[in-house]
Amino acid sequence: MGLSFDDKIPIYLQIINHIKKEMITGKLKGGDRMPSVREMAEKTRVNPNTIQRVYQELEREGVTYTQRGTGSFVTEDTAVIQKMKLEMSQEIIKTYVEGMKSLGMEAGDILSLLKGYLEGEQDGNNS
């Protein structure tokens, strides 16, 4: 996994987001077995305790579940994945809107610029 971290942000949060993204995009599918803590630590070159924390957090959020003796698995509940997708997109929107507002844009400007961008994208004009 070519994971590059921003060391300013807690590592465990970055790994959680990375795993969630893999679930949303279908790289990790419902019912897939998660790598063991040790495998994940070696793959990401991160302290196993940090990975342990990631796994605990994912399970607490209901994104994964543990089957005794066999490991940790991705939830098969599509509603959970859908909710995750919405939450992550909300965060991206928030960052975007904050960025636009810091440039002095109003809601109307933001909407029309975004609309224009999306239309351009359809025509293949944005690069």
Partner: peptide, 11 residues
């Protein structure tokens, strides 16, 4: 991790 979170900086 808490040092990173509290200070928004890397170690």
């Amino acid at each position: 991790e808490e040092l990173r979170l509290d200070r928004g900086r890397s170690i």
